[in-house]
Simulated scan of single mutants.
Amino acid sequence: MSSRDSSITHLYAQHQGWLQGWLRRRLNDSSDAADLAQDTFLRVLQRRQNLSLEEPRAYLRTIARGLMIDLWRRRDIERAWLETLQQLPEQQAPSPEVGVLMIETLVAIDSLLDELPPAVREAFLLAQLEGLSCPRIAERLGVSLSTVERYIAKALRHCYRLAFEQEP
């Protein structure tokens, strides 16, 4: 066993129970806590860095906190999707398989938008969702037209990179 594997094994043995308890107290759900604790250690395994941690619990807490936020965001998206489905006539409701794909797509879009700076995200959403022109967006945000054009270009480059330049 390599020293890295030994470090991860030791980290797991020493802190898995504590992490799961910490998550359980925050989530009020032992099943979600167990899943997120495992996901936290999976993230540690996926990182290719050396594990010489001075504060292992702070490190694990940081990863787990991000995973909790992802879980809550996903559940918010799922809730919004279900509310949208309730508005549709039954014959127009998509199949469960399509629903799962829609949720996955919405989660990916949410993640993509979250990576953008707030002003860039807002300009992009005003253009895409409200159909506002760049001059109207500039007026609404109180910035110059060239700034809005830069924001939109940045958001579009970001979308393009994620869609076409990442490896599968």
Rank of each mutant, 00 (worst) to 15 (best):
N50D: 12
P96Q: 11
L67H: 09
E115F: 01
I69G: 00
G99M: 04
L19P: 06
L67P: 05
P89F: 05
L71N: 01
S111P: 00
A64Q: 12
L71V: 02
R24V: 00
R43E: 12
I69V: 15
V100H: 11
E83Y: 01
Q86Y: 02
L113Y: 06
S6Y: 08
P89Q: 12
R121P: 03
A80F: 05
P117K: 10
A13P: 00
L11W: 09
R43V: 05
L71A: 05
Q46H: 13
A13R: 15
R26M: 12
V44H: 03
G21T: 05
Q16C: 13
W18P: 07
V107I: 14
N28R: 12
Q87N: 07
D76L: 08
L51W: 02
R47M: 11
D110W: 11
A119H: 12
L11C: 07
L51M: 03
L27Y: 10
L126M: 14
L125T: 12
L27F: 08
A80H: 12
D29I: 06
I69E: 09
L51Q: 01
P117E: 15
H15V: 09
R57H: 05
A37I: 04
L85Y: 06
R75M: 03
T9P: 00
M68K: 06
A58C: 09
L53E: 04
S7I: 00
I103S: 05
D29G: 03
L106F: 09
P89N: 13
P94V: 14
D114G: 13
E104G: 02
E83R: 14
T40L: 03
T40M: 06
P56S: 05
G66Q: 13
L45F: 10
G21W: 01
